[in-house]
């Protein structure tokens, strides 16, 4: 790395400004208690933590924060379990016949618009009695998380030397034992990455929650929408909620990457 390179400094600072300025405005919106933009568009007249106090005084917020994280953790675990075996057969090259098909299979949800999926799910869920239920929402969130987890786990299995499995077989290990004893310890970084991505996906998910779960199940994303949609545009509260959602998750991801040395990508 060449320190002191001018182009590098300029590019880095421009990008840092481009990325962090909007986030700063988000925080500013949440702190502005009086801001008459017609007189002074560049800065609020009064700032304070009034809106955070208001957010924390509404009991639904705690329920929504709680729900968001419980759903996200459940989704992460469920999708990992669901993809472990398929990723194993694909990643270790066990499937020869129709490999392309199976490889693509796990990525299908990425091509399905969430709105269209929601339109189709409404009657199905109504029929199964899954509307407004916890498991219904977990399953709905899981669909979109599959591609990220599937790809990460497949890469994980592919990165492991197949001779390890052979060696284990020599010592009499079979099926699930092989996965558990041989692969899982080596897969940990990939599992963590997959888990975090599924978690992030679930936190991000909004349309399906709104359509299928909303009266009973509300997540922070839904609450942000309620305060940021055109009908009830309330930037002060949307800002406070967004800050409460974004800042902890960025810190969490930063720590996790530092801590486990793995890189998490969304794509």
């Amino acid at each position: 790395m060449k320190r002191g390179d001018k182009v590098g400094i300029i590019l880095a600072s421009l990008l840092a400004f481009y990325i962090f300025f909007p986030l700063g405005v988000m925080i500013l919106e949440s702190l502005a208690t009086q801001w008459y933009r017609i007189q002074k568009w560049w800065a609020p007249e009064k700032v304070g933590i009034k809106w955070y106090v208001q957010v924390f005084q509404t009991p639904e917020i705690f329920k929504a924060i709680w729900m968001t994280f419980v759903i996200a953790i459940t989704v992460a675990v469920f999708v990992i379990l669901l993809n472990l075996l398929p990723a194993y057969v694909i990643g270790t090259g066990k499937i020869k016949f129709g490999r392309d098909f199976f490889e693509t299979f796990g990525s299908i949800p990425q091509t399905v618009p969430a709105v269209a999926l929601g339109v189709g799910m409404l009657p199905v869920y109504s029929r199964l009695g899954w509307l407004y239920t916890f498991h219904g929402i977990v399953l709905a969130h899981s669909v979109g998380a599959v591609p990220y987890v599937f790809r990460n786990l497949t890469n994980g299995f592919a990165s492991i030397d197949p001779e390890l499995e052979e060696a284990a077989k020599v010592f009499g290990a079979k099926g699930l034992t092989i996965i558990r004893k041989v692969y899982l310890p080596l897969l940990k970084p990939y599992l963590a990455a997959a888990g975090v991505l599924a978690f992030a996906w679930s936190i991000n998910e909004f349309v399906l929650t709104m359509l299928l779960g909303y009266p009973t199940i509300a997540t922070i994303a839904v609450k942000v929408y309620q305060n940021a949609g055109g009908y009830y545009w309330a930037p002060h509260l949307a800002g406070a909620l967004s800050t409460l959602l974004v800042v902890p998750s960025l810190i969490l991801i930063f720590l996790l990457e530092k801590y486990t040395g793995i890189s998490l990508q969304r794509v």
Binding site: M1, K2, R3, D5, V7, G8, I9, L11, A12, L15, A16, I19, F20, P22, L23, V25, M26, A200, I203, N204, F206, A221, V224, Y225, A228, P235, A238, G239, S242, L245, V246, S249, L250, I253, L264, Q265, R266, V267
Partner: peptide, 26 residues
């Protein structure tokens, strides 16, 4: 140029972890 690449990569990954609804709001 290979300068400040770690900083730039870290910075550029931030938007990927901001929920879309929040991006819309901001």
């Amino acid at each position: 140029r290979k300068s400040y690449e770690n900083v730039i990569i870290q910075v550029l990954r931030v938007p990927l972890f901001v929920p879309y609804i929040v991006i819309g709001f901001i």
